[in-house]
């Protein structure tokens, strides 16, 4: 069903190690029409712990959508994407890659790994906000999300 019909805030997990990008994404999502709750993890190991509710993430909500950076410490987004899409419990969660990489190899690999979509981060501030809002608008207001 559409995110706005869930009857609760939409849970978004952002996996991003750059504090400025986290802040901008938070700002863009705060103004969103659809009420949402943003959780942030800063590397791939944490992202997987969050999704598997391990350790400090024992009570973590299951995200409705994941925004995933590619270049992160410890475990990068490519590996996280592969692990999620190979996991029967997690593979249905839509994943939006949000990265500064425009490398064809990264784009190709992400789609081969069944990413839901790949979006590059604009360097310009207003454009960055616009892109995050477009993602929010499309995934939370147009798309029907899988239920848990």
């Amino acid at each position: 069903m559409k995110a706005e019909q869930l009857g609760r805030p939409v849970e978004i997990l952002l996996a991003e190690d750059n504090p400025a990008d986290v802040r901008l994404t938070r700002e863009a999502l705060r103004d969103a029409k659809v009420h949402n709750n943003l959780s942030v993890v800063t590397d791939g190991v944490e992202a997987m712990a969050f999704l598997r509710r391990q350790g400090v993430y024992a009570d973590a909500p299951r995200p409705d959508v994941i925004l995933l950076d590619l270049n992160m410490p410890r475990k990068d987004g490519r590996q996280v994407l592969a692990e999620i899409k190979a996991d029967e419990q997690l593979k249905c969660i839509p994943i939006v890659i949000l990265t500064s990489s425009q490398a064809e190899e990264d784009i190709l690999r992400a789609y081969n790994l069944s990413v839901n979509c790949y979006v590059t981060k604009p360097v310009e501030l207003d454009q960055f906000l616009k892109v995050v809002r477009s993602i929010e608008n499309f995934w939370l207001e147009i798309v029907a999300l899988p239920e848990k």
């Binding site: 069903m1 899409k85 593979k91 249905c92 839509p94 069944s114 839901n116 979509c117 499309f138 995934w139 147009i142 798309v143 029907a144 999300l145 899988p146 239920e147």
Partner: peptide, 13 residues
Amino acid sequence: IQKAYALQANCYV
């Protein structure tokens, strides 16, 4: 909807 995502539809509208 669930099945489409399980089959790796990029999105369901």
